[in-house]
Simulated scan of single mutants.
Amino acid sequence: MSDAVRVGFIGLGDQGAPMAIAIAKKFDLHVWARRAVSYDGLRGARHMKENDPVELAGKVDVLCLCLRGDSDLHDLLSDPSLLPALGKGGTVVSHATGDPAEAEGFERMTEEQGVHFLDAPVSGGRPGAEARSMTCFVGGRTDALDRTRPVIECHSKHIVAMGAAGSGQMAKLCNNALTVSNMRNVVEVFAMADKLGVSLAGLRDAFAHSSGGSFILQTLGTRVTVGNAAHIAELNRVDVDEFAEAMRRKGVDPTAIQEWATKGPDALEALVQRLQ
């Protein structure tokens, strides 16, 4: 793949816009958005607006999507003209988090048209996209990943091939479950320390330089604030439920992790307030 490869992007939201900006630094970028205001997120990055998804697909080799979830992807791919417009050998790269089983179905749908599909959810949020330091969990054909890797590298520092289609989504769900489980560890330990009069801010600072440190601990008071803690807690509960549902569909019992992790977000807002 060379810099001449044409890349399409749909999903210019809070996370998608900085990802698209990063891609535009190296590749010809074609974009489409349902709302005109969405283009404002590109902040002057070089791009070409297309009139609709089919027109966009007809002008690119790689179609990157950062949609809200599987239902939006279903709506997009259900247009019978879209995949033929992308053409045989083209690749759809879906960066949204979704159901592993759905990803398997999307691959079957696209391969019937000679188009490759990668489920490639990312971790890092908007800060990671802006810093171009995201982690991308990829499921799908190795040759398709090899061809699209230079595009994904624009915004993701770590790109990990997880296996067949669906495995990228499963890896992301496991990542989410582990993150929220670690949150429960933090809130439980800090609650006990607080009862004993130990400085919580002091603990956080000390743990940042010791074996008790963790990513989730680093976010408290920085990415997770008093203003957004309640919203993040709700998203974390959704993450745990999605993980549990996906595991059960695959015949794996997630009860122990689900019961432990679910209560972590309940105390998140109070802990952030105490730290400040």
Rank of each mutant, 00 (worst) to 15 (best):
D3P: 00
A4G: 00
I10Y: 05
G13Q: 10
G16V: 08
M19E: 15
A20C: 11
F27D: 04
F27N: 05
F27V: 05
R34T: 03
R35V: 03
A36D: 12
A45D: 00
M48A: 07
V54S: 10
V54I: 14
E55V: 15
E55K: 14
V62L: 07
C66E: 01
L77Y: 11
P80E: 14
L82G: 05
L83I: 04
L83P: 00
P84N: 00
S94E: 14
H95T: 10
D99H: 10
D99Y: 07
A101M: 13
A101E: 15
G105M: 07
F106H: 14
M109A: 11
T110I: 01
E111Y: 00
L118R: 13
V122G: 07
G128H: 02
T135P: 04
G139F: 06
G140D: 13
R149V: 07
P150E: 10
V151P: 02
V151L: 07
I152N: 02
C154D: 13
V160W: 02
G163R: 09
A165E: 08
M170L: 15
M170D: 04
L173T: 09
V180Q: 06
M183C: 08
M183K: 06
N185H: 12
V187W: 09
S199P: 02
L200P: 00
L203D: 01
F207A: 15
H209K: 15
T222P: 02
V226N: 13
A229E: 11
A230N: 08
A233L: 02
E234T: 12
L235C: 01
L235N: 06
N236K: 03
D241G: 04
E242F: 08
E242Q: 13
P254F: 09
A256M: 08
I257C: 07
I257V: 15
Q258C: 06
T262R: 13
K263P: 00
E269M: 03
V272G: 01
Q273C: 12
R274H: 13
